[in-house]
Amino acid sequence: MKSIAFFNNKGGVGKTTLLCNLAGYLSRRCEKKVLVIDADPQCNTTSYVLEEDSFYTFYFEDNGFSVASLIPPLEDGEGFVKSITVKQTEFFGFDIIPGNPTFAASEDFLANEWKDVKSSDYRGIRSSLLFSDFLSKCENYDYVFFDMGPSLGAINRAVLLACDYFLTPMSADVFSLLALGNIGKSLSNWRETFLSGYNELDEEKKAKIDKFHHGCVIKFIGYVEQQYITKSVGGQPRAVRAYDEILKKIPFEISEKVVRPINGEVIEGLDYKIGSIPNYHSLVPMSQTSHKPIFELTSGDGVVGAHYQKVKEFEGLMKEISDKMFANMEVIK
């Protein structure tokens, strides 16, 4: 099992749409067993992939196992949850741990526990590993994807310290470029702080953690350009000039502000751009309304005329992105 976080501390970059469709492609077309964790208190993934009745149960009635269910045992001093319960999605093909708006309150709890990490307090260190323990219960899956909010808060810190890899969706704007520096600095500092606190534990307490803790070895595997506007040049789509100027700056910024501080080196010849997705306009809300992947939309969902070619084109993009993601994962260990 490999765990992958989809993260950018800049919002509005199409992260949830990319994650759900890529996970759906792996499930539907590649027959992979995929689990998605909606760790964003806004619950956009949950509302996207679950039918309205199911979403209502989790979001408004707080009925059923959700990501928020991981917190109460820790707050009560009981440790981690003993087992997890997943929900199947009808059209996307993957399993999901739904989000819950009450999970936002966990920011304060996890932030307070992080203070104890710095003083090598065992409880604080254990609480900060809630997602590491969670992932140890997911070995029957091929891939576990995390959807996350755009913050650099305590929830996202716990997710990133637990995962094997992370992928960054990028929109073609200057704010996405500026956000990259925050990602590299923050993750490097978090990893250093956690390992410093962990190394001061006695061997007995380390042994309890080592059953599920992999050493904060998360690596950056690449980015996906999204939401730029294209024009036809020589019969081929190309980003319009305003977007193209920003897109040209991304590779250098990624290498210097993300890859070097997190992975330790920029691997020569490795392309960290694993995909490029233009704006698909009306197909995205069609997908959200029908709770289906974009590549499985039909006339019954509102697809007409030129939409059919776009639906087919989008499936090809998901294949390209998944192939490139796996190729990078083989190189970046």
Rank of each mutant, 00 (worst) to 15 (best):
P41T: 05
E313H: 10
S322N: 09
G99D: 11
G181D: 15
I250A: 06
P285S: 06
D40R: 04
E320C: 02
G234C: 01
C216D: 12
L19G: 10
G24M: 00
S3H: 01
F58S: 03
K273N: 12
V331S: 14
I254T: 08
F175Q: 15
P169I: 00
S171A: 10
I218A: 08
A104C: 04
I229S: 12
I4D: 05
S66D: 09
F7C: 02
H307D: 14
F220M: 07
I71L: 05
M170W: 09
V13P: 02
E245D: 13
F134N: 04
G77N: 13
F92E: 07
T230C: 11
L283I: 12
E253A: 14
G11D: 09
D244H: 15
Y223R: 01
L18P: 06
V174T: 05
K219Q: 10
F145D: 04
Y223K: 08
G300Q: 15
V86F: 14
K211R: 15
S196A: 14
I221S: 07
F109M: 01
V224F: 00
L187P: 05
G181K: 15
L160E: 01
K292S: 04
E107A: 03
G264V: 07
I250Q: 08
S47V: 11
V117I: 09
V34W: 11
F80L: 09
F252Y: 14
G64P: 00
E253P: 06
S176E: 04
L177K: 02
Y308S: 12
T298P: 00
R157G: 08
Y59L: 11
T46M: 10
I96M: 00
I71P: 00
S132Q: 03
N140W: 02
R260W: 07
S83G: 07
S106D: 11
